[in-house]
C-alpha cells in the first residue's frame, strides 16, 4: 500500500515537469498518426467488403 502511494506520488511529480508532458504529448501524437496511416486506409478500403463485386 505504502509502496503504491509512493509510486503514484513519484508519477505526479514527474507529470508536473513540463518536459514530460511535452514528451508524452509528442509520443501520443506521433503514435496516433502511425496508427491512422495503417488503419485509416484499411477501414475505408473496399477490401473489407466484397458484397458489391
Amino acid at each position: 500500500m505504502k509502496r503504491s502511494i509512493t509510486f503514484i506520488r513519484r508519477l505526479k511529480a514527474l507529470w508536473a515537469r513540463p518536459a514530460v508532458k511535452t514528451a508524452v504529448g509528442v509520443f501520443v501524437f506521433l503514435a496516433a498518426l502511425y496508427f491512422f496511416s495503417i488503419f485509416g486506409d484499411m477501414l475505408s478500403s473496399p477490401g473489407f467488403t466484397y458484397a458489391d463485386f
Binding site: T22, V26, F29
Partner: peptide
C-alpha cells in the same frame, strides 16, 4: 529548454 527536451524525448520514445 525543457520544451525541446520534451519533443526530443517524445520522438525518441516513438
Amino acid at each position: 529548454n525543457s520544451r525541446w527536451k520534451g519533443i526530443l524525448a517524445g520522438v525518441g520514445l516513438f
